[in-house]
Design a protein around this nucleic acid. Structure first.
Lengths: 122, 122
DNA sequence: GACTTATATCAAGCGACGCTTATATTAATG
DNA sequence: CATTAATATAAGCGTCGCTTGATATAAGTC
């Protein structure tokens, strides 16, 4: 299942946002998200499973609790996918800043951008 | 329909990637994507419709042709959604660089990040 | 104006996904 | 050891999105 399919679901997006605050037991996620979306415990648990199997989150057992935490990699992939599109709104010049900011490997030999659509119709 | 739902489909993602090269007639998209995914003209046309109605692309008529081009806004929204997660992989320090790079409006009063999971259970 | 080209729309089928209820599993607790 | 708490799994069902085949629209061409 592709990363974007995972993020297609609002419940899953919300779960990821929640985990931004740090590790959290499944029960807390269930209460929070369950209340917000009006869905049951199994429903949330299944979303957690999807997030687990797609590598978006990690689990750690603590007694009967399951502590979930964010896993950066898949989201980073999404971020990378966005890369070719950034030039459509990034102010230019900052190309370098972006490189630095996002810790780029190599990419881009600075071909003149040519943003889309150039009216020349008669 | 949420931006991530739009991007959930691989055909639509490919179309957007194609349009990265600039404005392109529907027919070209049909041939390119159609061949790559083995789908018909109506299929592609409907994906274009979805992209149109969700604001990911813009159309311009030129005779019987329809010239499609990228629209940055929705992708930018996705980029913005990723923001709270960036600290999970961005090397820190670059916070400033990122701001510059991504042309941030205001956001973030620089609260100490505190990346996830902090064990303190009794 | 008939014909072709380019593209959109419609109707229908199918499959996948998410939700629910019920139940299983495993750990803590008395 | 029986019971409760926390979480996961199973089975069934409805819905929704994707694709196809057929058709509509509209602009160029002869």
């Amino acid at each position: 299942m592709h990363a974007f399919d995972i993020l297609g679901d609002p419940v899953r997006r919300r779960i990821l946002e929640l985990l931004t605050a740090g590790e959290m037991p499944a029960g807390d996620v269930v209460r929070s998200v369950g209340a917000e979306f009006g869905i049951t415990q199994p429903a949330v648990s299944q979303h957690l499973k999807v997030l687990r199997e797609s590598g978006f989150v990690r689990v750690r057992a603590a007694g009967t609790r399951r502590l979930y935490s964010l896993e950066a990699a898949p989201l980073r992939d999404v971020d990378d996918w966005l890369d070719p599109f950034r030039r459509f709104w990034a102010p230019r010049l900052d190309a370098l800043a972006t490189e630095i900011a996002r810790g780029k490997k190599t990419r881009r030999e600075d071909t003149t951008p040519t943003p889309h659509h150039d009216e020349e119709h008669p």
